[in-house]
C-alpha cells in the first residue's frame, strides 16, 4: 500500500502531507500535521467535533478522505483567530461562558463561523438547526446559542 501525496492549503498556508488511501482528513490533520484543535468525538459524522471547512463548505473531516483534499482550501479552528486577535465568535464564546469542558468548542466555532458567513442575521431557530450536528453534552446549548446570536449582532454592527 503506497502513500498518497496531498497538496492543500490549510488556514491560508500551503501544506502537504503523505497519507494512506483510506485515511480520513481528520486523521491527517491530527496525526500527520498535529493540528489537534480539530477533535474526534465519534468518527461517524454524528457529533460535529471534527468540523472543518473545505473550499468554504462546512464538512465533517471524519467523513472525508485525506486524499480528497488535494488542491483544496481547508479551514480549521487554528485559523479562526488572526494571530493574537480572537474572532468575534471566539470572544463571544468566552464572554458568554459558552463552553464547559471545551471539547466540542472548536467544532461549534467552525460551524458557527460558516453559518454567519452564509447568514449574518440568523434567527435562534436557524442557529439551533444549523448547529444540530454539533453535539454538546455540558451546556444544554443555552449559552452557545446566546453567544452565536450575540456574535452575529456584533458583526452586523461592525
Amino acid at each position: 500500500m503506497s502513500k498518497i501525496h496531498v497538496k492543500t492549503r490549510i488556514n491560508g498556508e500551503a501544506a502537504e502531507f503523505l497519507c494512506e488511501p483510506d485515511e480520513t482528513l481528520l486523521e491527517a490533520l491530527r496525526d500527520r500535521l498535529h493540528l489537534t484543535g480539530t477533535k474526534e468525538g465519534c468518527g461517524s459524522g454524528d457529533c460535529g467535533a471534527c468540523s472543518v471547512t473545505v473550499n468554504g463548505r462546512l464538512v465533517a473531516s471524519c467523513l472525508m478522505l485525506a486524499a480528497e483534499a488535494e488542491g483544496a482550501e481547508i479551514g480549521t479552528i487554528e485559523g479562526l483567530a488572526k494571530g493574537a486577535e480572537l474572532d468575534v465568535l471566539q470572544r463571544k464564546f468566552v464572554e458568554h461562558a459558552a463552553l464547559q469542558c471545551g471539547i466540542c468548542t472548536p467544532g461549534f466555532l467552525v460551524a458557527s463561523k460558516a453559518l454567519l458567513e452564509k447568514n449574518p442575521d440568523p434567527t435562534e431557530e436557524e442557529v439551533r438547526y444549523w448547529l444540530a450536528g454539533n453535539l454538546c453534552r455540558c451546556t444544554g446549548y443555552d449559552k452557545i446559542i446566546r453567544a452565536v446570536l450575540d456574535a452575529a449582532a456584533e458583526m452586523r454592527r461592525a
Partner: peptide, 23 residues
C-alpha cells in the same frame, strides 16, 4: 462576579490538549 476563565482562550483556539492530543 463573572470572571474570564483561565483556560478559555486555549479552548476556543484549539490549543488546549485533551487526552488524545498528546504525541
Amino acid at each position: 462576579k463573572r470572571m474570564p476563565r483561565p483556560d478559555a482562550i486555549d479552548k476556543v483556539t484549539g490549543r488546549a490538549l485533551y487526552g488524545a492530543d498528546m504525541h
